[in-house]
Simulated assay, not measured.
Amino acid sequence: MTEVISTELQQQLDKRYGAGAPIADGVGNETLEVLLRHRTTRRFLPGTVSDTELRLIIAAAQSASTSANFQFTSVVVVDDPALRNRLAELAGGQQLVRDAAVFLVWVADWSRNIAIATEHGHSIEATAYLDSAVSSIVDVTLSAQNAAVAAESLGYGITFVGALRNNIDAVIAELRLPQWTFPVYGMAIGVPDPADPADIKPRYGQSVVVHRNTYSPPAAADVQDYLDRINAYYREQELPADWAKNRLAGRISTKESLHGRQHIRRTFGNQGFELR
């Protein structure tokens, strides 16, 4: 069993990193295999996630590390088809929001802790500062990633849906979110369609992202290695193959490329986060 896992791990590492992949060297277990085989699932088959499975997925989410045990995460389970359809449209018409067995919205939530503090006569001055918002978003992200791994360990596919932030005020209204909350992203969970061509997507080599003691800029050859591998991946997917031109530049070149997210600071203010 260990040998089989080690072989599968090495195959996954090779897809992630190409010729420069780390060598598993006999090390491996099922948890590492689940983590390394992750891919985005954009096409789902009809199917359900049982209530028991969903409760366990959320239990895994709640088992993530949390700053000072403040537990900033709230999860909205969206099972109303009409609401799902409206959220799909707000997220750029993404069909996967409609098709997934489960759709969750992950919310950074200061509201209940503020309520407890004020009920006990405490001031909330510190919540006006940027770090308070950052802490809640970090908490949500740790929780959501735990949920993603849990869902994938059960054989489901997942997709994070950050495009909910394109129309964030409308999402807040649809979900009736109170002040001191902020929807960070959605997550679609369901039965992956085996005909979906998506595969394990290449990542930067560890020589680019790992630094020892002090930061060092990546070597040009290591960056080019990644560009070659990711462009080859997109060609295999029959998608525009120039990652820097068609994806990176398209996301950072102008404020319009944010598709409405350039106004998020205003929304934070509306929700009570001053971000001082």
Rank of each mutant, 00 (worst) to 15 (best):
G186H: 06
T7G: 03
H120K: 14
Y226T: 07
I252P: 08
A21I: 05
Q10M: 06
R98E: 03
T73H: 09
Y156H: 14
W180K: 03
A115E: 13
D51R: 13
V97Y: 12
P202D: 09
T66F: 02
D51P: 15
L45I: 13
E274C: 03
G272E: 12
R203V: 06
V34S: 03
Y185E: 00
V97A: 09
V171M: 03
F103N: 04
P178W: 04
N166A: 07
R86F: 04
I172P: 08
D25Y: 11
N85A: 12
H263A: 07
G272S: 06
R42N: 05
F160P: 02
D196P: 03
P81K: 14
E274I: 01
T127M: 11
A220F: 09
D196M: 08
D228H: 12
G20A: 15
W106Q: 02
H38L: 10
P22F: 00
G162M: 07
E274K: 10
N213K: 10
Q206S: 07
L96Y: 04
I230H: 08
A133W: 15
G162F: 02
S111R: 15
S6C: 10
Q11R: 10
Q62P: 11
A163K: 04
P218Q: 05
W180Q: 13
N85W: 01
R86N: 10
R39N: 09
E8D: 13
R37F: 00
Q11W: 00
D225Q: 15
T31Q: 08
D242F: 06
D99S: 08
S111G: 01
V76L: 04
L83R: 14
I58S: 05
N69P: 01
I264P: 05
V171I: 09
I58V: 15
E236I: 03
I172F: 08
F72W: 11
S67N: 11
D99G: 00
H263K: 08
V138K: 13
D51C: 01
R165V: 02
R212D: 10
L275N: 09
P183E: 05
N167M: 04
Y226I: 10
L90S: 03
T267F: 12
F44G: 11
Y156R: 14
W243I: 07
T2L: 11
T2N: 13
L258C: 06
I200P: 01
V49D: 14
V97N: 06
E89W: 00
A147M: 09
A101S: 13
D196A: 05
S67H: 15
K245C: 02
D169Q: 09
R39E: 11
G26T: 10
P202M: 11
E119W: 01
E33H: 03
A133H: 13
P202E: 09
I5V: 15
A100C: 14
T31R: 05
R16K: 13
G155Q: 14
D14A: 11
L142A: 06
L239E: 15
Y226Q: 13
D25I: 06
G20E: 14
A244I: 14
L164H: 02
N29D: 12
S216R: 12
T118E: 15
Y215R: 14
R176I: 04
I252W: 10
N146I: 10
R86V: 00
G47D: 12
D222Q: 13
A101G: 11
I264Y: 06
E236Q: 07
I114W: 01
D225I: 02
D169Y: 01
P218K: 11
P202F: 10
L35Q: 05
S135H: 07
